[in-house]
């Protein structure tokens, strides 16, 4: 079974239908980028995968667990699904180290000495060992976002869900964050990204998913999606973003 399986999912906010029957399979080790115009349902789909949004119908499975089953323990599941948000959402009152070690310590009940080492390790992965004692406000946006990635990695997740994580960053800071993602990709981390960085999507994705009007309009390997779009909607979209 796929690591993530989304089957015929419908989701609406009040009268507004956001997802109109989305189906998608994501295998272990894949890097799936979801592209599309704003309002096409990309972020909502990502948030449904770890149960941040409830769906009206359909099924979502992640790591063998049905996410939208009310009996599912989302707390347990979420320890295996890392998510990083556009606005970082670091804990402003805690140091970088504590931001990273909080969940391993209080959720996974790991020893203080252990988690300190985890913090050092994940910070090295994102190139910010020197900032371990800083507070989030003392960091640039790009650094905060890398700390958010490190915080997620500290839980040793099986999948990373990345929701437009470079969209709030100044252009010169985006590169550092993307580099971290490329390193992760090389290490075989399964990732699902919603992104506007088309060059990046084309370079690292194993599968690109184009969403339109709450549906998976087209999907396939990046070269095919970017050079031979089959639908006029995707063709227009690609023209407008390239």
């Amino acid at each position: 079974m796929s690591l993530i399986r989304i089957e015929n999912v419908h989701k609406s906010f009040g009268d507004l239908a956001v997802l109109n029957g989305v189906s998608l399979d994501i295998e272990e080790g894949e890097i799936v980028t979801i592209i599309g115009r704003s309002g096409s349902g990309k972020s909502t789909l990502l948030r449904c995968i770890n149960g941040l949004e409830k769906v009206q119908s359909g099924e979502i499975w992640a790591d063998g667990v049905q996410v939208n089953d009310p009996a599912t323990n989302l707390r347990l599941l979420r320890q295996r699904l890392g998510i990083v948000f556009q606005s970082y959402n670091l804990f402003p009152h805690l140091t970088v180290e504590r931001n990273i070690t909080l969940a391993p310590q209080v959720v996974q009940k790991r020893a203080a000495a252990d988690v300190r080492q985890v913090a050092v390790d994940v910070l090295r992965q994102v190139g910010l060992e020197s900032k371990i004692d800083a507070y989030p406000i003392q960091l640039s946006g790009g650094q905060q976002q890398r700390v958010a990635i490190a915080r997620s990695l500290a839980m040793a997740p099986k999948v990373m869900l990345l929701d437009e994580i470079t969209s709030a960053l100044d252009p010169e800071l985006i590169g550092d964050v993307l580099k971290v993602l490329e390193d992760l990709a090389r290490q075989g981390m399964t990732m699902v990204l919603v992104t506007h960085e088309m060059g990046f999507a084309r370079r690292v994705s194993s599968q690109v998913v184009f969403m339109h009007e709450g549906r998976v309009w087209e999907s396939g390997p990046p070269d095919r999606i970017f050079t031979k779009p089959e639908t006029p909607e995707l063709a227009t979209f690609i023209q407008s973003v390239l």
Binding site: L74, R75, L76, F85, N89, F91, A103, V106
Partner: peptide, 28 residues
């Protein structure tokens, strides 16, 4: 709300969220 979201995505339960994330900030 994003502080609740971020902490719940890390697997923190309600009382853990309150104790480690929400109340320390609210207190200030």
């Amino acid at each position: 709300q994003t502080q609740w979201e971020a902490s719940s995505c890390l697997g923190l339960g309600f009382f853990q969220q309150m104790r480690y994330v929400i109340l320390p900030q609210a207190l200030r």
